[in-house]
Computed example of a mutant assay.
Amino acid sequence: MTQEILDQRAAAVIDANKYMTLGTICADGTAWVTPVYFTPDGHSSYYWASSPESVHSRNLARDPRVSIVIHDSSVAIGKASAVYLTAIAELVPAEELEDRAAFYSSRYPELRGFEVDELREPEGLRLYRANSLDHWILIRGSDPDHGTGTGTDSRHQVWPT
């Protein structure tokens, strides 16, 4: 399997899913994970809206390092595909908020678009962005090209820098 095929598989997983699992670091060093619906901007940035009072948002205010996994939990056991990534998260800066809010909500017609004022104080949501550092794709152990030949899955880097 070529790097191009691995990259295409990873892009397909990202494009096909609306939820990602966001992992943040609590003050005591423990992990906190939460699902959020997201909009990808290629494979470099991932956007979501959350309350600044949520556990993960408070964690990000203290430590912006995140881990993310994007996967389809509806597939049969043993058929999973997933993309893992590490990133640095931030609040979307005020000067980018209008454009990025429109971009974020464009993936979700059911949201009817966020008004920028809904994402500023005193309202309860903010727009966040994770800027990716590294990506990997999960390859099933039984994959004919990159599998381990066992039941052990492996991760392969995609979009290497």
Rank of each mutant, 00 (worst) to 15 (best):
M1Q: 12
M1H: 11
Q3I: 09
E4W: 00
D7Q: 06
R9Y: 00
V13P: 08
V13S: 06
I14C: 07
A16R: 15
N17K: 09
K18H: 04
M20D: 01
T21E: 09
G23L: 08
A31L: 15
V33N: 11
V33P: 01
V33Q: 11
P35M: 06
V36L: 13
Y37T: 05
T39F: 03
G42Q: 11
G42A: 10
Y47M: 09
W48V: 01
P52T: 04
V55W: 00
H56M: 04
S57Q: 07
N59P: 07
S67D: 05
I68G: 02
V69M: 09
H71N: 09
D72S: 05
S74T: 15
L85R: 07
A94D: 12
E95S: 06
E95W: 00
E96G: 04
L97F: 01
L97I: 04
E98C: 01
E98Q: 07
E98I: 03
E98T: 11
D99K: 12
R100N: 02
A101H: 03
A102I: 05
A102N: 05
S105Y: 03
R107Q: 02
R112L: 04
G113Q: 11
F114W: 14
E115R: 15
V116R: 05
P122V: 10
P122S: 10
G124M: 10
R126L: 00
Y128R: 07
L133K: 15
W136K: 13
L138W: 08
I139T: 12
D143W: 10
D143V: 14
H146R: 15
G147T: 13
T150L: 14
G151E: 12
G151I: 12
D153A: 15
R155S: 06
R155C: 05
V158I: 14
P160H: 10
